[in-house]
Amino acid sequence: MYYFLQQLVNGVTLGAMYGLIAIGYSMVYGIIGMINFAHGEIYMIGAFISIISFLLLGILGITWVPLALLLVLLLAMVFTATYGWTVERLAYRPLRGSFRLAPLISAIGMSIFLQNYVQLLQGANVKPLPPVVTGGWVLGRDGTFTVQISNIQVIIIVLTVLLMTVFSWLIAKTPLGRAQRACEQDLKMAALCGVDVDRTISLTFVMGAALAAVAGLMATLYYGVIDFFIGFLAGIKAFTAAVLGGIGSIPGAMLGGLLLGLVEAFWSGYFSTEYKDVAAFCILVVVLIFLPTGLLGKPEVEKV
């Protein structure tokens, strides 16, 4: 029971990070119908910018942890968002209206490029960050086994819930969110009604990248090590989460991320850590067979 609880805590933490990345995939897919393959790389860049910001703040002498965290969060979001914007501008915008596979290939190329860009600039070795946030809470004790939730986990979960709330409000209530939803339904019609489609798409990438940067920061804090290759697997997993929840649906992305995180945590807790990725993909296939549009996806009506 206590073991179960511990895995639950770990799974929710993992799921929160997957969910934040998955939103970027889901939004972009909802609006322009492409798999933004470079999104995992954006997350990786977010993690690198976070670690660099931490060191920089350390040099500047800002060591009060809450302030440092807030500053790093802002820096990572701003700079990573610039990367998201640039990727869209250079690699996807010229291809808008082209056939379906062209932006995908361009995205794969971008992903390879960004990975090697970071590897060349920052070196291929693993980058460790000494623990910034320490301590935790004991939830329960069973003989020698204690169920713990660390402060980092608390921060991750609270921050994710907070961001999700802000984000849902952004989509539901602001003019930008309205423009996004209009673009999602029909790009051409939205343009005819006066929505600046290019700007909306750019902002979608910026928002997705900012959320991925938060996930990158969380991963840096949680795991303590990053390297230039973390974006690939995280990207695939997050995309899996987005598909699982129903691609194009924002609550779906969050739910899919959570589910994937739980599956992984329980699988590695009860079976084996080697095959946790296999388990995640198998769940995806099983869900898709029975629910072809994902958990919360809208069934797509095809018209002739």
Partner: peptide
């Protein structure tokens, strides 16, 4: 060491330049 970097950039570049591929669809 720049091989993969250029490979990625070339993939993006060729797609932007000729979205339909070197020979047409």
């Amino acid at each position: 060491q720049f091989r993969m970097l250029l490979f990625g950039a070339a993939m993006v570049g060729i797609m932007v330049w000729r979205p339909r591929g070197l020979l047409a669809h």
